[in-house]
């Protein structure tokens, strides 16, 4: 026989999807929020994002090539997504060296020390962000003022930290609300905050795109947001003077970004729908607890990292419904 045929076990056809495509889809879904950030914060956005992405790719390349002695696989897009998410989680005025430190932590400690793509327990971007938040609290809480013609909302602090400070001074919520941007501004993204968490609306659009492209399922984002509404709603209902209403909770801070893009990180979230819902509920509860009773004004980063640690247990106990199950 002059020609050998290939044999292999079935199946012989494969879906056109690839890990790379999934990662690039996440990057595309983040694009509207990025463009909005450029509009709000100007070219600083591009500076932060490109430094973060570049540093993430570079760190991954160096570690893979010289430390792990394997073929670098930075083109798979996962470091790109980590870089964008890291940039989205920091203030736009952050000095370049802090961003680089964040990237080194995110990729080096958060991802590669566990073995690289697919092996990390925690969301790398959040590891980087939390590291920066603890190490450089001043820089990480210096919010640049946004000044757009015609829009009269110059903010130097995020709504959440305003509330935290206000409550510490014993101010009732209703009084604070007057000095806060209206809900529509929060939705569209005219309030202060990190790069990517500005516009809840654009993040939701990105999330819907991901769901249509079947990159993520509804379970995690919906369960996180629903839990936040429910828990904060209970507090608000019990004492509207002490606690702010649920709408502010879901529209402020990094909640949308966290619920849609960070918590749904495939590697560090549970595998089964049941596990994903428990995971989402856990994130929601912990977020509200930190926001209401913790030292930090924002809690979703910590909440996601804590639930990341719980994920292996959820995978162990939340089994899918077996066919013909007993």
């Amino acid at each position: 026989m002059d020609k050998l045929f290939t044999v292999s076990p079935s199946p012989h056809i494969f879906s056109g999807d690839s890990t790379r495509k999934i990662m690039y889809r996440v990057a595309i879904a983040l694009l509207p929020a990025l463009l909005w950030a450029v509009f709000i914060f100007g070219l600083d956005t591009l500076r932060v994002t490109s430094i973060a992405v570049g540093a993430c790719l570079g760190v991954e390349y160096i570690i893979q090539k010289y430390l792990m002695k394997q073929k670098p696989s930075i083109s798979d897009g996962s470091a790109l997504v980590t870089g964008i998410l890291l940039a989205f989680n920091v203030p736009s005025g952050l000095p370049w060296w802090i961003i680089v430190i964040g990237a080194v932590t995110a990729i080096g400690i958060g991802k590669m020390s566990f073995g690289g793509l697919g092996c990390n327990i925690f969301n790398p971007a959040l590891v980087g962000r939390v590291f920066l938040l603890i190490s450089f609290p001043v820089q990480m809480n210096t919010w640049p003022s946004i000044a757009i013609d015609g829009v009269d909302s110059i903010t130097s602090a995020t709504p959440l930290s305003l509330i935290k400070e206000g409550l510490a001074k014993g101010m009732p919520v209703s009084e604070m609300l007057e000095s806060m941007p209206p809900v529509s501004d929060l939705l569209l993204g005219y309030s202060g905050g990190s790069l990517g968490e500005m516009s809840a609306l654009l993040l939701i659009i990105g999330g819907i795109y991901l769901m249509i492209r079947k990159v993520i399922t509804w379970h995690i984002p919906v369960s996180v947001i629903a839990t936040v509404i429910l828990v904060s709603g209970v507090f608000w209902f019990s004492d509207p003077v002490e606690y702010i209403n649920p709408v502010y909770h879901i529209l402020t801070g990094g909640l949308m970004l966290g619920a849609i893009f960070m918590a749904t990180d495939m590697v560090s979230s549970p595998m089964t729908p049941k596990g994903q819902i428990i995971y989402g509920v856990g994130i929601g509860i912990i977020t509200i607890c930190i926001r209401l009773f913790g030292a930090y004004p924002e809690g979703i980063s910590f909440a996601i990292l804590i639930m990341n640690a719980v994920t292996p247990i959820l995978n162990m106990y939340c089994k899918p419904k077996r066919f013909g199950g007993r």
């Binding site: 290939t6 292999s8 012989h12 056809i13 494969f14 690839s18 890990t19 999934i22 696989s73 798979d76 996962s78 690289g116 793509l117 697919g118 092996c119 399922t217 495939m266 590697v267 560090s268 979230s269 549970p270 595998m271 089964t272 089994k319 899918p320 419904k321 077996r322 066919f323 013909g324 199950g325």
Partner: peptide, 25 residues
């Protein structure tokens, strides 16, 4: 079409769990 593509790490996307008609993992 007949050669398999390069295998990379599992990213735990859970698509196999969702695709399995017998509810396995």
């Amino acid at each position: 079409e007949s050669r398999r593509q390069e295998v990379i790490e599992c990213i735990r996307c859970s698509r196999c769990v969702r695709a399995c008609p017998m509810g396995l993992e």
